[in-house]
Design a binder for these strands. Sequence first.
DNA 1: TACATTAACTTGCAATATGCAAGTTATGCG
DNA 2: CGCATAACTTGCATATTGCAAGTTAATGTA
Lengths: 111, 111
Amino acid sequence: MTFKRSCCPITNSLDILGDKWTLLVVRDLVLGKRRYQEFMASSEGIASNILADRLKQLEASCIVTRRAYQQKPTRYEYVLTEKGEGLKPVLRALVVWGQKHFPSKKVIPAI
Amino acid sequence: MTFKRSCCPITNSLDILGDKWTLLVVRDLVLGKRRYQEFMASSEGIASNILADRLKQLEASCIVTRRAYQQKPTRYEYVLTEKGEGLKPVLRALVVWGQKHFPSKKVIPAI
DNA sequence: TACATTAACTTGCAATATGCAAGTTATGCG
DNA sequence: CGCATAACTTGCATATTGCAAGTTAATGTA
């Protein structure tokens, strides 16, 4: 998505967030995950190339910051920006709707 | 998406809603649109085959109901179910985030 | 010194989804 | 009879996703 489809704020949001993986990575970040392997370990089983792509997109959209957490070799972790934190209400609304319509015991208290 | 990727409610929601078009169709329904040509007329320019597919998915997920609004020839319109109405908080959260981070004059008071 | 391991990616290719343009169907209207 | 309308459907090109394997730069271990 290299252009804005319209000036509707929902559309603008979906231009960035509208796929099956992006918001799951944001969910993991909200839950405190920061490193590649932590994202990979989530139960949905994201493919490595897709994760790398989504992290790049999220960084390009200023939703996460990539920063080195060690040298030799340099390795990076990801943290939410304020813009990224601002997505919590979206996640909360999805949790509420999902819990109502896909009943299960699972709860995500942190979001 | 023919299977559940996990039992996370966010994931379950995104299994249905996670693409660039589905929630825009829901938005149009919330705004009062009901007919094929009305959805086609939205400014994002959805392709006809994609719209037909999304309406089928939404019906299969019990988010919309398809019903005839005339005979000879029989023509159909779409309306939100209660489950579909339940998506308003998700749309509202996307509006808030979108308006904050993609500034413009556009407002969607109805949602 | 050599070898296995770790962590964060990247690559190649097959499978799936999307986008575009045109076509189909049933009917009313002039 | 021919054109218009509305709700789709079809064929095909392009783009995205998914899978498996590979790469890189170190560190710990035999």
